[in-house]
């Protein structure tokens, strides 16, 4: 199944999608994609992945909390990028620990990733602060530095085990 959103022609109820807000159009597209992916085709729903870029754009914070809860319980896998502390704050602490990844650039210029709440400074603050509050209370430079330190530590350990 595919939902098409005509931008010019009127829908059957007489309202063109051109009259929808950006946020509403995005939510409609996301929900339609997820629900149709969950029921169609031979591929298992859990093996399907939907990639979303900066999900918070154009969506009111009140609506965003409902969308995040919906995505957290979606029948397919969701990977979304965000710069919004609200998105993180709408996750429970265990959900944030499990699912929040940070992308950073290492000293060689490579893009790397790690679990955000594996980083010592972020882990220490969680609980006292909500996940989104930790995010705005920690500088991205510090995060990149810590992530790199952690990666170096892990590779040193792996090297020692391999010897």
């Amino acid at each position: 199944m595919r939902v098409l959103l005509p931008t010019g022609a009127a829908l059957s109820n007489g309202i063109s999608s051109r009259h929808f807000s950006d946020g509403f159009t995005r939510i409609l597209a996301i929900v339609s994609q997820i629900e149709s992916s969950a029921v169609s085709g031979a591929v298992n729903a859990r093996d399907r992945i939907l990639l979303l870029d900066e999900i918070e754009n154009g969506i009111h914070p009140e609506t965003l909390t409902k969308l995040v809860k919906y995505l957290a319980n979606a029948p397919i896998q969701i990977v979304s990028t965000t710069h919004s502390p609200l998105i993180l704050n709408y996750l429970s602490d265990p959900q944030a620990v499990e699912s929040a990844m940070v992308l950073y650039r290492d000293f060689r210029g490579r893009t790397r990733s790690c679990r955000y709440f594996d980083l010592p400074s972020a882990k220490k603050k969680l609980g006292i602060l909500g996940p989104g509050e930790v995010y705005v209370d920690t500088s991205i430079e510090q995060i990149a530095h810590e992530a790199e330190e952690m990666e170096r530590g892990a590779s040193t350990q792996a090297g020692a085990v391999g010897q």
Partner: peptide, 18 residues
């Protein structure tokens, strides 16, 4: 649960909340 009103420095929200 509040977000800071400015972001001139980091870590302060943690110490305030703690």
């Amino acid at each position: 649960r509040v977000f800071p009103r400015d972001q001139s420095s980091f870590g302060n929200q943690y110490f305030r909340a703690a």
